[in-house]
Design a binder for these strands. Structure first.
Lengths: 349, 349
DNA sequence: TTTAATTGTGCAACCGATTGCAAAAAATAG
DNA sequence: CTATTTTTTGCAATCGGTTGCACAATTAAA
């Protein structure tokens, strides 16, 4: 056997035949066009219903040259942050009659490009992208940009003249997290980053460096650890520091997953957090409230980011975005909890 | 201004004109049909490339009456379990040249039905569904089933003759989790469930009841707590038990989120876990390894579930699914950790 | 009642790729 | 050098809505 055979379709032509009117009138009626008499409109809809008519988006798309579909390319969907972003995005899109075509790059530039091309062929009206670790430049977006398909980056963005970025101020957040550790009396603070190709990590790193500088604290290369920030990064980080001979009194990591992994590993090795080593994460994943000690972190508005990215895209598509926006920065917030609190201070709420 | 204006398309007709051959030959050439001479095929592809040709899926879909698109309806995407399922699904689909159209019901039956209808209109080739809390019956799937569109349920499934279900043995898992608590010496075990409309929760509950019965342990209504299993369910559960005057020595909850929330709340109230109250969760979310004490839970193969659901669907669509499969049950595993371990026993790895 | 304005309906072209069928071209056989 | 088979190619219809334009029907104005 060779796949499913589709049943014959009920088309507007069947309806037009049944009502003895033309297909154009049926089409207009179904679209609730004021060009069609009200009672006739009602009759058309009723008949369509009765006959089990199903609108065919392809025929319509083919003619109208648009799909009401948005392409989404993300590294992976199975992180708390990203699934929250997508959740917000999907909701906004759905409410405006758009659908989402989601694909994962798995942090690979090659797969990312393939996904972009596939979405391009699917004729998405717009594209929402958060870049992979590996991506170097905007080459894979040539086609998209050439065709004037709106492009909105979020979180992991790229400098780009004809597109919008939705971000938080990673520099400032990194600065604040580091400054907070310094305020707690830390003198030797290590930073754990992801790929420095990506704005989110390079900016946080820049903020960290600036805070050190502003407080006249020294920095050397061994104080920067670059990892995949994954579930097992804690062990890797600790090993690298031990090999280095670097014993920090504070660690600022670029996400909560690695911070939590790190805390577990530190505890296993007999370090006290925060007394021996204070730790700060990034993202405000739910786990940051569960780990002991509770993790100080930067609240990252995932759902809002998805909503803003989607609604901006839709405004662009519908032509209601009058001003040329290049970048939208959302508010972040340093959430202070036990993992960084020394000197018996209470967390500020 | 009224939206974006699309640039004119390069079509197979343009290519045919440029090469002075017919459009059919171009179409065949681009599809790598052996009907076209090899060198000509190559020339066609090259020209297409040079001219910036972009395949138009709509025209093709319209003609071929299929979309290589799968519709997915889930309660929400922003849970660890569900985002993992979707991740696996997307990967399998992508590898087979399919795309996913994902929508969230937000546990609402009305929204679920709307989503199904929208996907139906988008002419998805098949539909992958995990039901909302509210869904009562299969009414919303009338259209789908009438048109013989393959339907695969996963996790939260529905009895249904013409569709496949991908599940784990929730009854047995519930039984095993409860039996484990009994083995640890618990005499009064409370169960925390989600909506009992859904197989996953009713089955786990049934397993729990069966285990009590088999061990001649009494049950009364106050020992069942039904909640949304959300982030704050811990407080609600504890309050309800206190109001009940029920003080259990073991609690089996139907997911990890509520188990973790519960553990935090119990600790806050001064109970010791597992000495006073042993706790067992469900799902094996990463947080279960972080919370203290580490959470005993049932490992739930999310990624595999997504992969199996997607590949089953694709096999059905491609006609390579010869046998009539009604249900696929994946393996689960009770993961024993500290939260349930009394009597100084070590966890069995 | 005639003319002008307004509203409602239909015709036919169009979107762009696919494919059954027939015919032309090339290869093989006799 | 024909006759037959095989390989290539093209014609034209098809998928099912949408929409510009023209014409018909109805209403309003003169």
């Amino acid at each position: 056997m060779t796949g499913m055979k589709k049943k014959a379709e009920v088309t507007i032509y069947d309806i037009s035949r049944a009502l003895n009117i033309s297909a154009s009138t049926v089409s207009r009626g179904l679209n609730n066009s004021p060009q069609v008499r009200k009672d006739l409109r009602k009759k058309i809809m009723q008949t369509a219903q009765d006959m089990g008519y199903q609108h065919n988006k392809f025929a319509a798309n083919l003619r109208q040259k648009r799909t009401r579909t948005l392409g989404v390319v993300i590294p992976r969907i199975d992180s708390h942050f990203m699934s929250t972003v997508i959740s917000g995005m999907e909701k906004v899109a759905n409410n405006s009659g758009y659908q989402l075509l989601i694909s994962q790059s798995e942090e690979s530039a090659v797969l990312e490009e393939a996904n972009i091309q596939a979405l391009f062929n699917s004729r998405v009206d717009g594209m929402l992208v958060s870049l992979s670790y590996e991506t170097r430049n905007s080459d894979s977006f040539r086609n998209i940009l050439r065709k004037d398909i709106p492009l909105v980056f979020f979180d992991r963005v790229l400098e780009c003249t004809n597109c919008v970025s939705v971000v938080i101020d990673n520099f400032r957040a990194g600065y604040e997290a580091t400054q907070h550790l310094i305020d707690q009396g830390c003198k030797k603070i290590v930073h754990v980053a992801g790929s420095l190709n990506r704005n989110v990590y390079s900016e946080r790193y820049r903020g960290y460096r600036q805070a050190l500088t502003d407080n006249s604290l020294p920095f050397d290369d061994r104080m920067l650890v670059v990892t995949d920030l994954g579930d097992n990064s804690g062990m890797i980080i600790v090993n690298q520091l031990l090999n280095n001979g670097t014993t920090p009194d504070g660690i600022f990591t670029a996400n909560d997953t690695s911070a939590v992994s790190l805390i577990c590993e530190l505890k296993r090795k007999g370090y006290r957090v925060p007394e021996d080593i204070a730790v700060t994460g990034f993202n405000d994943d739910p786990v940051s409230r569960i780990v002991e000690p509770n993790l100080t972190t930067v609240h990252y508005p995932g759902r809002a980011m998805g909503e803003v990215a989607a609604s901006t895209m839709i405004r662009i598509l519908e032509g209601t975005q009058y001003e040329k926006v290049n970048s939208i920065t959302l508010a972040h917030e340093l959430i202070i909890r036990q993992s960084s609190l020394r000197s018996g201070k209470e967390p500020s709420s």
